[in-house]
Design a protein around this nucleic acid. Structure first.
Lengths: 178, 178
DNA sequence: CTAATAAGTCAACATAACTGCCGTAACGCC
DNA sequence: GGCGTTACGGCAGTTATGTTGACTTATTAG
């Protein structure tokens, strides 16, 4: 009654009652592989550009989320990246020094140093984005719209509640909207 | 005509004809977010256990792929992980020393040191797997079978050809089959 | 006025990756 | 049977990215 599919016609002899369990385990193991390989090759896509500039993936992540959240506070960015202030400071320091990120004092709260991409930062972020876009777009195209919707749903299910909330706000930290 | 949704009720003035392009860009940016958050929380799932044992994610990855490929050669494992010999040596050394991985000399080729999980290694790998399984299974359950198939197709499309080949062999390096 | 918050900073450390180079043993071919 | 290649291991040094804990300063808020 737990099996909606009914028959279990297997090609190999299987221990009685274990076949569904076995199939699920295979499926979960395969999912682990999917996560590893897809993420590895997705992140690799931008590495050529980063290497040229002597930047790393941490810089890319910062550029990505600052780009998506102009005037984000340091605290909010830390919450998204889930790294420590020190780790971010190193990365952010390099990005500011090299003119990719600008910091301006908050107007409502002058303790804040709001982060925004400079034109150079926006251009770099776009170049990095393009590389990953190529991979993603190709995968989306091959898989089709239906598959993409399924992909979204599963990925959403894997992430934390807080990440889901972030995505529900259209990939922003929730303040502005236009 | 390019906009399938009809109305473009934007809060900001938008360049004419850019709406479809805009939607695709939003979609691709959202996909980057999906990759980041899902992978982050997927890998986090096993961290509690790893921390207790003083191991890292690199050890987990090695355990995972050795578990899925008993008697894998060092060279094959390096090709899967795409790290250098030195990086693997550190991780593998710890796993062997702590009794999670056994090395036996190859029979056909005695230069090889075939890697296999010991019973303790298999048990640890299973504990780590269980943590990630919970997350994946919950996401799969919520999303439904159709979505899972789409997820698979998209993830497959994102990864390299060599990774696809690996997955086509049922998540093995291609030699044995049972 | 005082406590809490936002941000920055210093020092020290851990990890997981990298490079380049060298050595040994075993395989495989001409 | 010798020689080039492969599989594996190891050394030394470097880099990228993360960590902790303690401390400072400016500013906000109760």
């Amino acid at each position: 009654m737990l099996d909606p599919k009914g028959g279990t016609r297997l090609l190999e002899p299987a221990p009685a009652g274990a076949s569904l369990l076995f199939l699920r385990e295979e499926e979960m193991r395969a999912a682990q592989d999917l996560m590893f390989f897809a993420y590895r090759d997705f992140t690799n896509a931008a590495d050529v550009i980063l290497d040229e500039l002597g930047l790393g993936r941490a810089h890319h992540r910062a550029l990505h989320f600052i780009g998506g959240n102009p005037e984000i506070t340091v605290t909010d960015l830390l919450a998204i990246l889930r790294i420590t202030k020190q780790s971010l400071a190193r990365v952010l320091g390099a990005l500011v020094e090299q003119g990719y990120v600008a910091q301006v004092q908050g107007r409502a709260d002058r303790r804040q140093r709001l982060l925004t991409l400079t034109p150079a930062g926006a251009e770099l972020e776009r170049r990095l984005y393009e590389r990953q876009r190529e991979r993603l777009a190709a995968a989306y195209r091959e898989a089709g719209g239906n598959a993409v919707e399924g992909f979204r749903r599963v990925m959403r299910g894997i992430m934390d509640e807080s990440a889901r909330a972030y995505m529900d706000q259209g990939g922003t930290v929730g303040r502005r909207r236009g």
